[in-house]
Every structure is written in C-alpha cells, then in structure tokens.
Amino acid sequence: MKQRIKLFVNGEAYDIYTETNRTLLDVLREDLELTGTKRGCDSGECGACTVLLNGKPVNSCLILAPEADGQNIVTVEGVSRPNLPLHPVQEAFIEKWAIQCGFCTPGMIISAKALLDRNIEPSEEEIKQALAGNLCRCTGYVKIIEAVKAAAEKVRDGRS
C-alpha cells in the first residue's frame, strides 16, 4: 500500500510517495538522501537514528513514514547550514574530541541539542539521562559528556 505524505525536513517541504510499511528513517536516508541519520539497531535501542520531531528527539526507526505526514523534522544536516557557523554542540564535539568512529555522533548531536534547547544548565546526571538512549560502542562517553558541558557553556555565553 502506497501513500502520499508531506514532510518538512530541515525547513524544506517534501512531497513523498511511499510504501506505508517504511519508516521515517527509511524515507530520510533513501528518498531524501539525508544519510547523516544512521541506521544502527533498527529497533529503538541505540539512538543512532535520533531526529527531532516537532522539536523533540525520537527514534526515526520507530515511526512509520505515514505517521510523520505533515510533521516538522530536523536531522543532523539541519542543525547548522552550509556557510553558517557550526552549532555549539557540534563545535564542542570537535574541540573535546568527542568523536571516535563517528557512527553514534549524529544521534548524540541531536539528543544533546534537544537537551540544551530545554535546559541550558544541565547537571552531569541530566546529561547522562538525556543521552542514555544513545549508545557509543567505542565507549567514548567521557568525552561526549565533557563536550555537552562545554556546549552548554557556549550556549549560555551566547545568550548573556
């Protein structure tokens, strides 16, 4: 069964004609070629496919494409735009060496950005809770947590 859906991804509108048994992740990667969003476990365990749906982080592998019809989505490609400065979270990940193989990074960036969108002064515990659904199999968590702390500082400095 096929269905026409409309998606707003990173500020752009897309009309997509898709099988209903595909996920939002399938559509993002295969139809829109936004391959920054990664397919890890395909079952909501690893968080590599995390995107913002109407501003909230969700696992795009657990959302049917037709469920996303008419919704606003931000992928890692939309966190900053070409020719614009990086998002403070992205800057901090680079500065703090919070990337090893890089596979978990897009999901981590989205979860961290969502955390700072709702709380610009997260405690270490709050950072851990917010990133608990994002697995890093290089186990580089220490650097990632440092990066989110640094990013929070950047966001706070930017606002004051």
Binding site: T50, P57, V58, N59, A132, G133, N134
Partner: peptide, 9 residues
C-alpha cells in the same frame, strides 16, 4: 522507562 527518545513516543 526506556530512553528519552522512546518516552517521547
């Protein structure tokens, strides 16, 4: 319950 992402759905 599960993770923040799952709790949003």
């Amino acid at each position: 319950l599960a993770s923040y992402q799952v709790r949003n759905r």
